[in-house]
Amino acid sequence: MNIFRLTGDLSHLAAIVILLLKIWKTRSCAGISGKSQLLFALVFTTRYLDLFTSFISLYNTSMKLIYIACSYATVYLIYMKFKATYDGNHDTFRVEFLVVPVGGLSFLVNHDFSPLEILWTFSIYLESVAILPQLFMISKTGEAETITTHYLFFQGLYRALYLVNWIWRFYFEGFFDLIAVVAGVVQTILYCDFFYLYITKGMSGCALPA
């Protein structure tokens, strides 16, 4: 565990909690892509099945459980409790265009052809593109609320910090996971355009790229 990995995890947690609190406090999920949140719930579910097979640390287990619980809570708020405020008309990204190719790729390119490993690979690939429905929704409406841009900032920061973590681990631990790194680079690139606007437009509810 290095400082980049830890701050990456905390950024990820911040993003998840920011979104959950925003929906809870405003009693509204307007501007939030339920499809992205469903994909993230699927990502955590398929990745953390190793909760049943291996124990790494109390930190590891706790964070996994928190991520899963928060992502399901978010999905529940969007599709059940505050369903009336969910803007489904603008959340029109076709998720099958992500899930089907990602599913195929995880069967073809993985570390080991076993069920848990394929599901782990699937979750890594899916996470890298899971934010696309949210970015697509913002590009359709042309605007995002300030708090939504904070959410996206911490999501992007998390992945950027993980990239530094992998560089660190490569040099100091000889650790290198090609699948995670390639997917992580793709995921980080998706946020670059957003990062630029977030910083230049004063981190407020700004018009985002079409």
């Binding site: 995890d9 990820h12 640390s57 590891n60 964070m63 991520y67 782990w120 996971d177 699948i179 995670a180």
Partner: peptide, 10 residues
Amino acid sequence: GNESGHKDEL
């Protein structure tokens, strides 16, 4: 190693 190394990350 690759096989076990990635499992400690979230």
